[in-house]
């Protein structure tokens, strides 16, 4: 099975030192920048030992980091670069069946594009990671050069769970508990899908595939129903959306299957509501998930896996 979500635990910044140039190396040492570990994950989350999961024939490695949380564009971009080099050296070089995700610092679109262009020749990177919760909805035009770079290089765009740029992580403020942070992330995924769709990213870049990592999946049908209905009455605000939103979503959006927020007796119902089996990508775990042709879906999603 092609596992599309192996989460690599955040390395300490010290592990990135060898990949930072003189100024940034000394900066992080002298100013005590020791960590880019997120506050929105349970401590110790992610795999520490590079390797392929036992049930996988190929795996996409997604490093965990809170790169979006730093406010200096340049510092964040330097650390993102270090993280990408670390991933390549420690994970991708450890096993030829491993593929990776490029971490970009979304604080600067220009620097993010430069990093994508820099790494595009590395065929083992298959997608670009953006955080679920950032400064702006992902569909906003300021981010489009990043998506254009993805399409230019045959990379998917991945939206990974989490994210925190210092503003309230829900539209109604700061929840008290980590469990609420996680529970509200499905709503954040809903907003991001809506933004990418209604801003016209899928119209402008019809070949772009957007992969939602660890989203929970089952929130998607109700969003599509509501969007289809509202679009019929308010289409004029976004006239470039020329097909029903649910159709566009089925073409362009993919989701890793775990966690799958439904009991087993609802699997058939949810699949019918999604309206497509092609959207699901495999990620490993113990809980049951629907049975679809995951490997074919992965090959269709990631052009670099087809080469």
């Amino acid at each position: 099975m092609i596992d599309c979500d192996v989460r690599a635990a955040t390395p300490p910044v010290s592990a990135l030192h060898e990949y930072l140039d003189g100024y940034w190396h000394d900066t992080v040492v002298e100013r005590g920048v020791r960590s880019i570990e997120p506050s929105y994950e349970l401590p110790g989350t992610g795999a520490r030992v590079p390797g392929l999961p036992p049930d996988a024939s190929l795996a996409v490695v997604n490093p965990i980091s809170a790169i979006e949380a730093l406010h200096s564009e340049d510092l964040a971009a330097a650390l993102a670069r270090g993280l990408n080099e670390w991933l390549r050296a420690r994970w991708l070089d450890a096993d030829p069946r491993l593929r990776g995700s490029i971490t970009v610092a979304p604080q600067s679109t220009e620097l993010a594009v430069a990093e994508i262009d820099r790494l595009a020749g590395e065929g083992r990177f298959v997608q670009v990671l953006m955080p679920l919760r950032g400064q702006h909805p992902l569909g906003r035009r300021l981010y489009w050069p990043i998506y254009e770079a993805c399409v230019r290089h045959g990379l998917a765009l991945a939206v990974r769970a989490g994210g925190n740029i210092g503003s309230a992580i829900t539209p109604v403020g700061w929840p008290s508990h980590l469990v609420e942070d996680h529970a509200t992330q499905s709503q954040a995924f809903q907003s991001q899908v809506m933004s990418l769709l209604l801003e016209g990213v899928f119209h402008r870049l019809p070949r772009l595939k957007v992969v939602l990592i660890g989203s929970g999946v089952t929130w998607l049908p109700s969003l599509c129903w509501r969007l289809d209905k509202n679009w019929k009455g308010i289409r004029r605000e976004v006239p470039w959306v020329e097909r029903p939103p649910s159709e566009v979503v089925r073409s362009c959006v993919r989701l890793t299957v775990r966690p799958f927020d439904a009991p087993q007796d609802a699997f058939a119902e949810v699949l019918a509501q999604l309206g497509s089996e092609s959207m699901l990508l495999y990620s490993g775990g113990d809980e049951p998930v629907p049975e679809v042709d995951y490997d074919e879906n992965a090959r269709q999603t990631y052009s670099r896996l087809r080469d």
């Binding site: 035009r141 801003e199 016209g200 119209h203 402008r204 289409r235 004029r236 006239p239 470039w240 959306v241 020329e242």
Partner: peptide
């Protein structure tokens, strides 16, 4: 009638 076009264009 607003014609479908490119994002930002309102024909």
């Amino acid at each position: 009638f607003v014609v479908p076009g490119t994002p930002g264009e309102y024909r």
